[in-house]
């Protein structure tokens, strides 16, 4: 059925006169000066109900512990093989009263009950961020799977300041996304929300109710690669 449907649909489309392909008009997404870029990112993502904390490359796990303690978080999911996951495990191992770490180290089929219900927060890194819209860019990977930023009630995302791009268009072009798209790329601009009931905003309808952004200050040595 499908093959015939395919050829019939395509035949109908080809029978129609092809339209002229309009030329691509000039359009440039907004650009920002260095100091504006960071401020714009923070203002936009905060306006979307995210919490932003400026942190240092070395001390963020300590800072995160106190942020999460105030929220009563007890179980935190991490990606055990990423730089962030390893740093968190190393620092928290020496901290009294640090939340328990749960590693996303097995397929979802095994971890589903834990993921769906038993985790309070998850910590992920980000591939980048976008100033224009206050957006996090994640390319989930075998090390850091997709559901980490989605199922737990709190999503903690580490953003290195130097990775903030002006716009999605600039980021896609600079990194040549079209040459090799990942299984899943996701842009996140705040916690999960809905306004379906009388246009009243409510957070955490399906995904995280809270989004905590740890904005990692640039090191003097310059951009530290992951």
């Amino acid at each position: 059925m499908s093959d015939n449907a395919r050829s019939r649909i395509l035949a109908r489309l080809r029978a129609a006169a092809p339209g002229p392909v309009p030329p691509r008009p000039a359009w440039t997404p907004p650009t920002y000066l260095a100091e504006e870029r960071r401020a714009r990112f923070i203002a936009m993502i905060e306006a979307a109900h995210a919490e932003v904390h400026e942190v240092d490359q070395t001390t963020w796990p300590v800072r995160l512990r106190s942020i999460l303690a105030n929220k009563g978080v007890r179980r935190v999911m991490t990606a055990p093989t990423t730089a962030a996951g390893q740093q968190l495990a190393a620092v928290w191992a020496d901290l009294a009263d640090a939340p328990a770490l749960i590693a996303y180290d097995q397929p979802v089929e095994v971890l589903k009950p834990v993921l769906v219900r038993d985790v309070d927060a998850a910590v992920t890194m980000t591939r980048g961020a976008i100033a224009e819209t206050g957006t996090l860019v994640l390319w989930p990977s075998p090390a850091e799977p997709r559901l980490m930023s989605l199922l737990p009630p709190i999503h903690v995302a580490l953003v290195e300041e130097w990775r903030i791009a002006d716009s999605l268009a600039a980021l896609m072009a600079d990194e040549s996304w079209a040459a090799a798209m990942p299984t899943n790329a996701v842009l996140i601009s705040g916690p999960s929300k809905t306004a379906d009931i009388e246009q009243t905003l409510a957070y955490g309808v399906h995904g995280p109710k809270e989004l905590i952004v740890l904005l990692v200050r640039d090191q003097e040595a310059g951009a530290a690669a992951v």
Binding site: A48, Y104, D105, Q106, P107, V108, L111, T135, P140, S141, P142, P145, R146, L147, M181, P182, T183, N184, A185, V186, L187, I188, S189, G190, P191, S192, K193, G207
Partner: peptide
């Protein structure tokens, strides 16, 4: 809040 770009099913090694 979310822009979800899906380009393939789960690949070997991916956990979800």
């Amino acid at each position: 809040t979310y822009v979800n770009m899906i380009t393939s099913p789960r690949k070997p090694g991916e956990k979800d």
